[in-house]
Amino acid sequence: MGNSNQKITTFLMFDGQAEEAMNFYTSLFEESEIISIMRYGANQAGKEGTVLRAEFSLKGQVFMCIDSNIKHEFTFTPAISLYVTCDTEEEIDEVFGKLSQGGEVLMPLAAYPFSEKFGWVADKYGVSWQVTLAKN
């Protein structure tokens, strides 16, 4: 399902939650799937069973992710976010609602001068999402 011509891929680094996050994200959007998962094995650098490297797609856009085997002093930041254009009111309400659960709303779902309906949220994993309603 992924786009084999894609030359630049968004890469997400998690701290033990990569597979959980992929399952969550692919459940939010139709035409989405986990493409591949390589896991750390016994006696490897990362915790056995966590994600060494994985690829998943959301609506045909391919993403990569890992569970870092190193504890870093940084995590995700809203300075970079995933921007989603939703086709219907129902879709934007559902996506924003699910992404907000356990996360932090950065801008509530509302009308803004630049969008009829828009919201910005950092999900429970710290990944930042901007969702907007497609213009009619």
Rank of each mutant, 00 (worst) to 15 (best):
G49R: 13
M13D: 06
I8K: 01
E94K: 10
G46S: 09
T9P: 06
A18D: 00
E116W: 00
F76S: 10
K98I: 01
S68L: 11
F63R: 07
V95G: 08
F74M: 09
M22F: 09
K135P: 00
E116F: 01
S115V: 03
M22P: 06
V84L: 08
Q44Y: 10
F14D: 11
E55H: 13
M107I: 11
L82M: 14
L109H: 11
S32I: 01
A111P: 07
G2N: 13
S27L: 02
F63N: 10
G102H: 01
Y112I: 14
D123A: 07
K124N: 06
N136I: 06
C65L: 04
L28M: 08
I35L: 13
P113K: 00
F96C: 04
G46V: 00
Y40G: 05
E48L: 00
N3Y: 03
G46L: 09
S100R: 06
I70C: 00
S32Q: 11
F29P: 05
M22E: 07
V131T: 15
G97V: 04
E48A: 13
S27G: 05
M64P: 03
M1A: 14
D123Q: 07
N43M: 06
F14A: 11
T88C: 12
G103V: 02
E73A: 12
K47V: 15
E91L: 04
T85M: 14
N23L: 12
I80P: 03
V105K: 07
I34Q: 07
D123G: 05
